[in-house]
């Protein structure tokens, strides 16, 4: 009798696990999602993970559909409503804001820009009770109250490049400044494209994170040269997206989901989920460790998520191959650097 019950229980559990696996399907992975066509791209606010006060200082606008918005969205997912100072491309202004928040007694100050590192090295030692979270950076500059973060942007770049090569032989890249996660994304993209048989993508760095006119002109030059797909990064990439739309070229995004710019032609976006590392950092801060560690976003830890556009009719073979590539990157079988 007992054996029969045990068997029944096992059968039920087995059925539940099978059902769960079937429902999850391709999109169950933490590193891959597909948006529902026409759905709202807004991020739902999660349950708050902390009672500590949080402030964010960022170079571009909080809703730039790029670098800064990815952080705002991540904080929203963690249920955090930070005080925000955005649009601080001028480092001195950012430094004043960072110091101001620390002086006001904010517990956690996020300095969301590589360029803020020099200022942080001066400010952080003056406020040993405040935790500073800084990125993108691969080290904490030896500061005990600084956490650092950076995305392994080459991973999603590789996946996007691989998919792009399935759609076009010649691909144009609109880069901003040859530095940081931009260059990692671009180099990963080029490697992925070539791994799938495309020629080396044509890469142009405009020299500006914010100059939409230059990004537009660059994308138009690529289109004139006959490329079959475009990608780009930074908030200036919106200019390149308008060219992609005008020329009916598939577009590949990074940092945030660029479907907001191009609903029909965005194929996939690598989206930064900073919340993965922020949650870990906040837990450490609440435990009394205010810094001293650098963390990275990867496809493996779910910090990088490939978001496919449900409105774009991507060939299922290409999609399957891309998901295979993601699995191989996570397994360490493909090097994206």
């Amino acid at each position: 009798m007992r054996v029969t019950r045990l068997l029944k229980l096992m059968a039920v559990l087995f059925a539940i696990s099978l059902t769960a696996a079937a429902c999850g399907g391709d999109d169950d992975s933490a590193s891959v999602t597909t948006s529902e066509c026409g759905s709202d791209l807004g991020v739902e606010k999660g349950d708050s993970v902390t009672d500590l006060s949080v402030a964010l200082v960022a170079p571009s606008a909080a809703d730039d559909v790029a670098f800064t918005q990815s952080m705002v969205d991540s904080l929203t997912r963690l249920g955090i409503e930070p005080q925000i100072t955005d649009g601080t491309f001028v480092v001195e202004e950012a430094a004043a804001a960072i110091r101001g928040y620390a002086e006001d007694g904010v517990n956690i100050v996020i300095a969301h820009g590589t360029q803020y590192g020099g200022s942080l090295a001066e400010i952080a030692p003056d406020f040993p009770e405040t935790s500073f979270i800084w990125g993108t950076a691969t080290d904490t500059q030896g500061l005990a109250n600084v956490f650092a973060y950076h995305p392994e942007a080459d991973q999603g770049g590789y996946v996007n490049g691989y998919i792009a090569a399935g759609l076009a032989g010649d691909i144009g890249v609109v880069g901003p400044v040859e530095a940081g996660d931009a260059v990692a994304y671009v180099e990963g993209f080029a490697k992925g494209a070539q791994a799938n048989g495309a020629s080396a993508p044509s890469i142009v760095y405009t020299g500006s994170f914010s100059d939409v006119a230059l990004a537009t002109t660059t994308a138009q030059a690529h289109a004139d040269n006959g490329v079959g797909a475009l990608t780009g990064t930074s908030q200036s990439a919106v200019g390149a997206v308008t060219v992609a739309t005008a020329n009916d070229l598939p577009w590949f995004g990074t940092q945030s989901n660029t479907e907001a710019w191009s609903t029909d032609l965005t194929v996939a976006s690598q989206v930064y989920h900073w919340d993965v590392v922020l949650k870990d950092m906040i837990e450490q801060i609440e435990g009394g460790t205010l810094g001293g560690e650098a963390m990275s976003l990867t496809l493996e830890n779910g910090g990088l998520v490939m978001e496919f556009n449900g409105c774009y009719d991507l060939d299922s073979d290409i999609r399957d191959a891309a998901e295979g590539v993601i699995e191989d990157i996570i397994a360490g079988e493909i090097s994206t650097k």
Binding site: S60, A61, D64, G87, F89, S208, S210, D211, V212, A213, L214, T216, Q235, V238, G239, T242
Partner: peptide, 14 residues
């Protein structure tokens, strides 16, 4: 400029 680029954002003119 804005209508040629078909967009506006902070410091568009650069």
């Amino acid at each position: 400029l804005a209508l040629q680029l078909a967009v506006f954002q902070h410091n568009l003119t650069n």
